[in-house]
């Protein structure tokens, strides 16, 4: 099994560190350049959400395999207010803040597998996969 690392998301500069670490992991499992760029961009979107809307959290980065192919698995979680209406939050253009509302739906399009768990008051947990 590959390695797993956990990074805090407590301040803006943590997003930059997570981007760099996700890039390293994507290189380690030998994703192509476009796939690397997509998973790093998705991580950036979701990590920013966790920081801004979730009040901070953490990002787990795992180098692993999916059906024998090299894969990166990310779990980004926060203990914030959670998302009341998940369906609506996934739609492009919907935002509860000042952003463009591309974060969740956009991130989902960039990865191979996307799972989100969230309930009001329970925080949000998002799992992202990208494989070769």
């Amino acid at each position: 099994m590959g390695k797993t690392e956990i990074f805090p998301l407590k301040q803006e500069t943590d997003i930059v560190i997570v981007r760099q670490r996700v890039r390293k992991a994507a290189e380690a499992v030998r994703l192509g350049l476009v796939s690397q760029t997509k998973i790093v961009t998705a991580a950036s979107e979701i990590a920013r959400n966790a920081l801004i809307y979730g009040g901070g959290g953490e990002c787990v980065i795992e180098e692993t395999t999916k059906d024998g192919r090299g894969a990166v698995r990310l779990v980004i979680s926060d203990q914030g207010e959670g998302i009341a209406n998940l369906d609506r939050a996934m739609v492009d253009g919907y935002t509860s803040g000042s952003g463009m509302g591309l974060g969740l739906g956009g991130a989902k399009r960039l990865v191979d597998q996307f799972a989100i768990e969230s309930q009001p008051g329970q925080g949000t947990r998002i799992e992202l996969w990208k494989w070769r």
Binding site: T37, R109, L110
Partner: peptide, 14 residues
């Protein structure tokens, strides 16, 4: 802009 960045931007919806 790098090609991989351009591809990603479009898919992101920007």
């Amino acid at each position: 802009m790098q090609p991989a960045v351009a591809i990603t931007l479009v898919e992101l919806g920007l």
